[in-house]
């Protein structure tokens, strides 16, 4: 690391979050959040993300960072790619490390407690959501795609308090079981500061991603592939 990128000997990490309607960027330095800009507006990430990065670096008072952590998904395919293309180009141009953070894990980082279970749910289209259960920030189930109402109902069988987060909470049509709560607004959506903090863990664990081949966590395949395979299956069954 060149000396000028390091402020007071502390490592700077830029977090980038564009998996949902939230466009969020943050700069952290060890134990400090130097700056964060988040917005959930109707503007597209393609227009807002880079100016936000320019702004957040300015507010943090830094020219550059030592690593970039990016929200990898699942989420909006296009949003993920805008975030990742931006993170990759920064990592490549500045020759800094890139850290790929699973989006659901970054949301779960809002709740660093083992006394409750967190279920971040992100829109997977057709009333379904990407979902995974977390306790104390660590995953305790597989990442799955499930109908929104089924997630809400089956959360009733989880022991103890459960918090639902994410961008599909408005689509829940069933009554919530008594142990299940909707997370407060400030802890519902992904934020770049969480991505940067989760990135710090990856960095400390030596889990650095490769800027040359890093891909989003899509979870779902493209519709065209699914359709093609169904057709192949049908014609082989004939």
């Amino acid at each position: 690391m060149s000396a000028r990128t390091i402020r007071g000997g502390n490592l700077l990490i830029l977090g980038i979050e564009a998996a949902t309607r939230v466009a969020s960027v943050a700069v952290i330095s060890e134990e400090k959040i130097l700056a964060e800009i988040s917005q959930e507006a109707r503007l597209t990430h393609s227009e807002t993300l880079l100016p936000q990065i320019e702004q957040v670096l300015k507010i943090a008072g830094v020219e550059r960072v030592d690593a970039v952590a990016v929200s990898l998904g699942p989420g909006s395919f296009t949003g993920l790619r805008i975030g990742l293309a931006t993170a990759k180009a920064l990592a490549y141009a500045w020759q800094i490390k890139i850290l790929g953070v699973p989006t659901l894990q970054a949301i779960a980082y809002h709740f660093p407690t083992s006394s409750a279970t967190v279920l971040p749910m992100l829109d997977a289209q057709k009333n379904r959501a990407y979902v995974q259960a977390f306790r104390a920030g660590a995953p305790v189930s597989k990442l799955e795609v499930k109908p929104v109402d089924e997630i809400a109902t089956s959360a009733g069988s989880i022991d103890g308090e459960v918090f639902l987060c994410g961008d599909v909470l408005g689509k829940i049509k069933v009554p919530l079981p008594p142990n299940v709560k909707i997370a407060p607004v400030n802890l519902r959506m992904p934020r770049a500061v969480n991505v940067a903090l989760c990135g710090k863990f990856l960095l400390d664990a030596g889990e650095i991603s490769n800027v040359m081949n890093l891909e989003p966590l899509y979870v779902r395949r493209s519709e065209a592939e699914e359709l093609w395979e169904r057709r192949q299956k049908l014609s082989s069954e004939k």
Binding site: S46, L49, L50, T78, A85, Y92, A93
Partner: peptide, 19 residues
């Protein structure tokens, strides 16, 4: 294709900014 264009646009903008 919009999704395809966006990858190049995001990368190019960021390279221009970083450099």
């Amino acid at each position: 294709l919009v999704g395809a264009l966006l990858v190049g646009v995001a990368a190019a903008k960021t390279l221009a900014f970083a450099l």
